[in-house]
């Protein structure tokens, strides 16, 4: 169901970022500051709007209309889901998911797949809106009101995301946080900080140690 909604509103999804430049710019700076290197993939790449900042080579998404936009942006795309990735073992230096975790049908399975396709010593980056922030609460309200995207979302607290990564055997090595300004009064672009203090947007980078 969520796949169809993202397909139908593909164009609209990007428009929001264009209308919220301070948010978009701050988020791009955070993604850039994760310093992901090598051969990378974004799971849930959508329209590929963050691709220039994450340094990815490939993107997958189940929503084909969003992928067509990503392809026009120069991303090599595949119509696929994180729960069943069409890749060999040990091929990627990094995997990034940007505001994708809340929409996954089976997050545990996706993380197992990510572990499988990452090289030993490869990195996973989870970038998202934590539930325990003013921005997270705003999205929770939208979800409660039946917002077309967010009614399918399951947001996580910052600590929950750390716990999920730990449970799956990833070793957290970097934390970035931005959007200290609340949603109702954001006026300027922010630089990312390295400690979570109920920021509205976070990035967590973790190592995949296979042995």
């Amino acid at each position: 169901m969520i796949i169809k909604v993202f397909d139908e509103f593909a164009e609209e999804y990007d428009k929001w970022y264009q209308q919220n430049r301070e948010v978009f710019e701050s988020e791009c700076r955070l993604i850039k500051s994760l310093e992901l290197k090598g051969f990378g993939i974004e799971v849930g790449v959508g329209t590929g709007i963050f691709a220039p900042f994450s340094n990815i080579s490939i993107g997958i998404d189940p929503a084909i209309n969003m992928l067509k936009i990503a392809k026009r942006r120069g991303v090599e795309v595949i119509n696929a889901v994180g729960e069943a990735m069409p890749f060999r073992n040990d091929v990627f230096d990094f995997v990034i998911m940007i505001t994708t975790l809340p929409f996954l049908k089976d997050p545990s399975k996706v993380l197992d797949e990510i572990r499988r396709i990452l090289k030993n010593g490869g990195e996973i980056a989870i970038v998202d809106v934590p539930k325990n922030s003013k921005w997270g609460r705003l999205y929770e309200e939208k979800k409660a009101k039946g917002h077309r995207f967010y009614r399918f979302a399951n947001f996580y607290n910052f600590e929950e995301i750390l716990e999920i990564l730990n449970r799956k055997g990833f070793e957290v090595i970097k934390i970035r946080a931005t959007l200290r300004q609340p949603p109702e009064s954001i006026t300027k672009v922010e630089d990312p900080e390295d400690e979570f203090k109920n920021h509205g947007f976070i990035g967590i980078k973790a190592l995949n140690n296979k042995v």
Binding site: I3, P62, I64, L67, K68, K71, V77, I78, N79, A80, V81, E83, A84, P86
Partner: peptide
Amino acid sequence: EAIPHMLPDDL
């Protein structure tokens, strides 16, 4: 259209 479609059976 140059995009591989590699979804699992149920999708």
